[in-house]
Amino acid sequence: MTVRTTHTEITFKRPFMLSAFDARQPAGTYRLSVDEEEIFGLSFLAYRRKATVLQTPAISVTSSRHQTVEVDPEELAAALDADALASRTVEE
């Protein structure tokens, strides 16, 4: 089984909440890792998402407590969209 991991950073301009957390998370830039495994038997290269993991606290926060939490990618995308919409509304 071939697994690949993609590391990116995502930024929330406002505090946000996801069901994987007990409390709202502060605005900031967070590290995000996505694990995917290769789908065999196809005539082309394809991958299936296996895990989406968000690391807390935000990169800019100094803390002795670090946590890696698996999050729902659709819920995360919706939270990022809502954050972007709220930020645009305030700027206008």
Score class of each variant (00 low, 15 high):
Tyr47Thr: 00
Ala46Thr: 00
Arg4Lys: 15
Leu54Thr: 05
Ala77Gly: 12
Ala84Val: 00
Thr62Ala: 13
Asp35Asn: 06
Ala78His: 07
Glu37Arg: 14
His7Lys: 15
Ser64Phe: 13
Ala82Asn: 06
Pro26Phe: 06
Asp83Thr: 01
Thr6Tyr: 08
Tyr47His: 10
Lys13Thr: 04
Pro15Ala: 08
Glu37Thr: 11
Met1Thr: 13
Glu36Lys: 06
Gln55Pro: 02
Lys13Arg: 12
Thr62Ser: 07
Leu54Trp: 07
Ala58Leu: 11
Lys50Tyr: 02
Thr62Tyr: 07
Ala77Phe: 06
Ile39Ser: 01
Ala82Thr: 08
Arg48Cys: 05
Ile59Arg: 09
Gln67Arg: 12
Leu42Tyr: 00
Gly41Leu: 01
His66Tyr: 12
Ala46His: 00
Pro73Trp: 01
Ser19Gly: 03
Thr2Lys: 11
Ala51Met: 06
Gly28Ile: 05
Leu42Arg: 02
Arg48Gln: 11
Ser64Met: 14
Thr11Gln: 10
Glu92Pro: 00
Arg48Trp: 00
Met1Asn: 12
His7Val: 15
Asp83Pro: 01
Ala58Cys: 12
Ile59Phe: 06
Thr8Gly: 03
Ala27Thr: 05
Val53Pro: 03
Val3Ile: 15
Lys50Cys: 09
Ile59Lys: 10
Leu42Gln: 04
His66Arg: 15
Val69Ser: 13
Gln67His: 10
Thr89Ala: 15
Val69Trp: 09
Ser60Ala: 15
Phe21Trp: 11
Pro15Ser: 09
Ala23Val: 15
Glu74Ser: 08
Thr6Leu: 10
Ser19Lys: 13
Leu54Cys: 07
Glu75Gln: 12
Thr6Arg: 13
Ala79Pro: 06
Arg49Asn: 07
Thr6Met: 07
Tyr30Ala: 03
Arg4Met: 04
Ala23Asp: 13
Thr8Val: 08
Val71Asp: 08
Pro15Asn: 06
Ala82Trp: 01
Val61Met: 11
Phe12Met: 02
Glu9Leu: 11
Ala82Cys: 04
Leu45Met: 10
Phe40Thr: 09
Ser19Phe: 05
Glu36Ser: 09
Leu76Asp: 04
Ser64Asn: 12
Val53Phe: 07
Ser33Leu: 11
Thr89Lys: 14
Phe21Lys: 09
Ala27Leu: 05
Ser43Tyr: 05
Lys13Leu: 10
Leu32Tyr: 03
Ala58Arg: 14
Thr5Asp: 03
Asp72Ala: 14
Phe21Asn: 05
Ser19Leu: 07
Pro57Cys: 10
Arg65Thr: 15
Pro26Trp: 05
Gln25Phe: 02
Thr52Met: 08
Glu38Arg: 00
Arg65Asn: 12
Arg24Ala: 15
Lys50Ser: 09
Arg24Glu: 15
Lys13Pro: 00
Thr5Asn: 05
Arg49Glu: 15
Gly28Leu: 02
Thr89Tyr: 07
Thr89Met: 12
Ala86Phe: 00
Ala84Glu: 03
Ser87Lys: 02
Val90His: 04
Ile39Asp: 00
Ser63Lys: 10
